[in-house]
Amino acid sequence: MIIIAIILGCVIGAIIGVNAPIIPYTYSTFLAIAVVAALDSVFGGITSVIKKNFDLTIFITGFFCNSILSIALTYLGQRLNIDIYLAALVVFVGRMFTNLTIIRRYYVDLWKSKITQKVKSGKKAEE
């Protein structure tokens, strides 16, 4: 069910995004930072699922609020003539890497434990 929702959302979003009108280049910075914020939220969500403390409300609010906040910060940075979006980018990407590490470790551990289990079961069968 969730997988179907994810695939459907991705496909519809991609189709509409491809056919959407081009936004001016000046505003593309906002979109880019929003994309990075959303991706960070997604990886954070996956991490929390692995850690088994996933909360939908927190995930959704984080997803949208982070995007909007990053856009607002970027706008403020433009107003102040300082590239705040760079700081946001550093934070988001850094967090993304941390989360990716956690995910990787989890699956590597899973894979390792499976192998050891197989070996153990094989040994038991031999015995």
Partner: peptide, 24 residues
């Protein structure tokens, strides 16, 4: 169902923005 719908919406908006940005 609520969860899938919200996640679907999130995926939808993420992909929409991403592809718009790609296109731009």
């Amino acid at each position: 169902i609520v969860m899938s719908i919200t996640i679907g919406i999130a995926c939808f908006s993420l992909m929409l923005v991403m592809f718009m940005q790609f296109k731009v």
